[in-house]
Each structure stands twice: as C-alpha cells, then as structure tokens.
Design a protein around this nucleic acid. Structure first.
Length: 317
DNA sequence: AATCCCGTCAACCGCGGTTAT
DNA sequence: GATAACCGCGGTTGACGGGAT
C-alpha cells in the first residue's frame, strides 16, 4: 500500500492563475510557508489547485525577489558559458543568477538567446570576415598553435586594432570540459617568455566528486540554490589578460571540441591544431552549443558593448 | 477590418530519483 | 521489499498579443 492520492484530479483547476488565486497563495505562503508539504497546501490555503501547480506558481512568479524583464549582458554571458559547459541544466544555471528561475532562463534561451547567437554567426557575417586566415574555409587545420597565434595577431592588428579592447578573463585558466559523465578534460594555457601561448593538457578521469565544476583558479564565488540542491560552480580569479592570450585559449578550445584524442604536438614540439573548423555554420542547436563552448569564458566578448556582432565575427571563425 | 503568422512565456506533462506507508 | 505518492527537473504546449499580409 502506498500513500493516499495528493489531490482529486477531476476537481482541480488548471490554466492561468487569477489575481485572486495569486493573492491567496501569496498570503498563505507569507504567513505559513509550505510547511514542507506542497500537497496539502492548496487545501489549507483555500485553493482549488494541485500542489504541484501551486509550487510552480510560487517558485516561478510569486516568491519574493523574482527578477522579471530584460536579461543583462552579464547574465547572457553566464548563461552561455554555463550552457556550453553543462548543457540544459537550467536549475543549475538559475542558481548562478539570483532572482531568475530555471523556467525563465529556459524560455529566454529558447526564444531569444539561442537565436541571437545563431544570428551572429550567420554566413553573411562570415563573409564580412572572409579574409581572415581563420575563416577561410572548411578544412583540416594542422598548424602549430604559435603560428596560428601569429597569423591571428598579424591579421587583426591590421584589421581592427581599436575595436579590440583588453579582455577580462582569468589568466592561466583551467577549463574543464565534459567528455562523458565520468570523465573531464582539462586544458591549461599559459603565456611563455616570447609572448606566445603554450598549451598544456591532460585528461582527468575524475569528474567532480561533489558535483562541482571548476572554471578557474583559486578564488571561488559561492553559489546557493533556492532548493538547496544546487551543484556548485566556482569561478577563478579574474585577472586581466591581453587579447593575445585569449587567442591561444581559443585555439585550444577549438581543438578540444574537435576531438580530444587528436590533441598533440607536431615534430617540432609545437602543439598542433587538428580538426574541422566549420565556416559553413549550419547552426543547429548542437552547433551553437559547440560554438559557445569554443569561446567558453571568452563569451563575454559577445556582450561587451553595442558592437556585439562585430566582435562575434572577430572571435568566431 | 479580417485573418494569418510568429514570438513570447506561463503552465502543464512526464520522467527519474526519493520517500512514506 | 513492494508500492505508490512526492518532488524537482527539463521538455513541450497553448494562450495571447503584436505585426504582417
């Protein structure tokens, strides 16, 4: 024998909530809280609703400190970064955005943010940067990372030096990418004496023991969740690094996404980049995700100012 | 003015893990 | 231990409003 049914399914109201229902629920919650049981709440509060419906209404709309309205650029950046790292775990993403609900973020992603990103990387825009050595074609690249770095600087120093402001990103940044549910790959980037970017990488069969994703160095930002079940996410120190360093990171990330197993060094000892860089950009969701993932923390480049499209083209090739 | 189309978002549905009986 | 509800989550739906035709 199990429990008694939670409610009389035939006698509960469905559909949009009326202001009167909202008022009842809000008043009850403010006086008594859930009491740890959503199922009996509607009865006590005098609502002809299923407890599940009450819970949703409260969490997504009525509870205090809910933020409605436009998402900020910073919020955009966080959503993109986390989506690239952990996928559609909206509750975890929501835990990083105080006042935002998972439902809100999910809707925002599906209706706006995803399209925004796809629009930014459309072929027309690609054409604008077709002279970039990084957007030339869909091809297999096997160049030393340092050469890519030089090419990139050479190109963009001529093309648009003024629009590239210093980029905020952690230095010596440790990225963790999910390989599977039990395996993560870490890629580690540093600037060497010549100002070029070396790449170190290793495979960690140790996903987080505590469901923790680590995005950076030593400093951590705390995380809390409305339901107490949050996965923890910490960010590293936010040293400023120069554009050149970002380039190195970015190259490495592309490589990461095109197959970790191909990672390696050439005969000269230079890290090589191997894998397809797709300039056709037929953007389905997975590809948007991949593109975000390529930029990873550098996604903040997209949300810096009015010239978002301009910057997108520069950094996504 | 009527209709269609599309974007938005609140709410529902169903699943998987957990918990009470 | 078995059963069935609870709970939280992510995917999907459908009502609504505004713009286009």
């Amino acid at each position: 024998m199990g429990r008694a049914p939670c409610c009389d399914k035939a006698n509960v109201k469905k559909g949009p909530w009326s202001p009167e229902e909202d008022a009842k629920l809000k008043e009850f919650m403010e006086k008594f809280g859930t009491g740890g049981n959503w199922i009996v709440l509607p009865q006590k509060a005098g609502l002809k609703r299923c407890g599940k419906s009450c819970r949703l209404r409260w969490l997504n709309y009525l509870r205090p400190n809910i933020k409605h309205g436009e998402f900020t650029d910073e919020e955009d950046r966080i959503i993109c970064t986390l989506y690239a790292s952990i996928g559609s775990r909206w509750s975890v993403i929501a835990s990083q955005l105080p006042g935002r609900t998972d439902n809100d973020i999910k809707n925002y992603w599906n209706t706006k943010l995803k399209k925004k990103l796809m629009g930014l990387i459309n072929p027309l825009h690609q054409a604008k940067f077709s002279s970039s050595p990084f957007s030339a074609s869909t091809q297999l690249l096997t160049q030393p990372l340092s050469q890519l770095y030089r090419d990139y600087n050479s190109f963009y120093n001529q093309a648009a030096p003024k629009s590239l402001s210093p980029i905020e990103a952690p230095q010596n940044f440790l990225y963790n990418f999910p390989l599977s549910t039990t395996q993560y790959c870490s890629s580690y980037y540093q600037q060497n004496q010549e100002g070029l970017v070396d790449l170190q990488y290793n495979f960690n069969p140790v996903k987080d023991n505590n469901n923790m994703l680590i995005f950076g160095g030593n400093d951590q930002a705390s995380c809390s969740s409305s339901d107490g079940s949050c996965s923890q996410i910490s960010y590293g120190n936010k040293d400023h690094v120069k554009q050149e360093e970002i380039v190195g990171q970015f190259q490495g990330l592309i490589n990461s996404n095109n197959g970790f197993h191909n990672y390696g060094k050439n005969f000269n000892g230079d890290p090589i980049m191997s894998g397809l860089v797709n300039s056709q950009l037929q953007c389905d969701l997975e590809e948007v995700k991949q593109l975000i993932s390529n930029g990873n923390d550098n996604i903040n480049l997209l949300f810096n100012d009015e010239n978002k499209t301009e910057k997108m083209g520069m950094y996504y090739f």
